[in-house]
């Protein structure tokens, strides 16, 4: 399938937005990060808006969303509900922090800020689980999005903390970053294995010919998915998704955990976030490349 950039950017920015609220709420639960929590909330909101604008660009008739939008079994409807819940969680966090004199929020607000982003990201991943597309139809898609969100969000909050010259340890957040970075690489590896194992689920017509597309070669699921590992997409997969997006964030997160001052924290967190972002975008793009239908014949 062709790359659907609006959807790729939507999932990317919603992971970022959800992850930031998640990380800030983790800090709030520990009573930390009050000095920069408003900045984090704004960053999360901005990411949500950018993601929202991106997904609107995918709609051909967005003006018709007021004409019957809301079919509850639709992943898009569920995502919209998730985005509204995420916005409300942000708003509640902001208002409750404003209400208290010291900027603290009640524990339940922090828990809402942890749980709602998890639900949002899980719902977003779930909307792409389609039996007709075996490459997407795996819980690993949801797992990857969740880990990716936790990693990007925690790194962003650490960057904001460093930018605000907060020299706090934020040990828990740094541990979340390190563990998330490791889990992300594991999730990528497991997802890749799931893709490899899915080759047998496609229809096998043997030789076939479409007289309306005489110049389009036969679709070979094994070759398309194999291109990730040894073919035309190998550089993007091994270089972009695995090395830049998987291994480098682990190394940088390790150094981040050793960093004691804001300067080094900023440097390692920024570098790790850039690598994670590149890897995340590359992997999301590759998932479109291998998104064959189970019928495995291009008809258009």
């Amino acid at each position: 399938m062709e790359l659907q950039w609006p959807l790729i950017l939507f999932t990317f920015f919603m992971c970022l937005s959800s992850g930031i609220l998640f990380a800030q709420s983790v800090l709030a639960l520990k009573g930390e990060g009050r000095a920069f929590q408003n900045t984090s909330l704004v960053a999360s909101f901005v990411a949500m808006v950018v993601g929202g604008i991106a997904v609107f660009l995918h709609l051909q008739h967005w003006e018709r969303i007021f004409n019957g939008f809301g079919h509850i079994t639709s992943g898009i409807t569920q995502e919209l509900i998730g985005v509204v819940l995420l916005f409300l969680a942000l708003l509640v966090f902001f208002l409750m922090a404003r209400r208290s004199e010291d900027g603290s929020v009640p524990a339940w607000v922090a828990w809402v800020g942890i749980i709602v982003p998890v639900i949002m990201v899980a719902v977003m991943g779930h909307s792409y689980l389609m039996e007709g597309r075996p490459s997407w139809n795996t819980p690993m898609l949801i797992v990857y999005y969740l880990i990716n969100a936790a990693l990007m969000g925690s790194l962003t909050v650490l960057i904001i903390a460093a930018a605000k010259k907060q020299d706090g340890d934020f040990e828990l957040l740094k541990k979340i970053v390190f563990i998330s970075a490791i889990l992300q690489l594991v999730a990528l590896a497991v997802y890749a294995m799931v893709l490899g194992a899915s080759v047998g689920t496609y229809a096998d017509h043997g030789t076939y010919f479409d007289p309306t597309l005489p110049d389009i070669p036969k679709v070979e699921p094994a070759a398309v998915i194999g291109s990730l590992f040894t073919g035309s997409c190998a550089l993007a997969f091994w270089g972009g998704a695995i090395v830049v997006g998987g291994i480098l964030p682990i190394c940088l997160s390790f150094l981040l955990n050793k960093a004691k001052d804001a300067g080094k924290t900023m440097t390692y967190a920024c570098a790790s976030l850039v690598c994670t972002a590149i890897g995340g975008l590359v992997w999301r793009g590759l998932l479109y490349v291998v998104a064959l239908t189970i019928f495995a014949i291009f008809l258009h």
Binding site: Q60, H61, R64, I76, G132, T293, F295, L299
Partner: peptide, 27 residues
């Protein structure tokens, strides 16, 4: 067609690839 917003999720969900976006009507 008057309700279709052109999100193309149905195109993605169809196991047989028999749906497509009409570029003129954008549905």
């Amino acid at each position: 067609k008057s309700k279709c917003i052109g999100c193309q999720f149905c195109v993605m969900a169809c196991p047989y690839g028999v749906r497509y976006l009409n570029p003129e009507e954008r549905v």
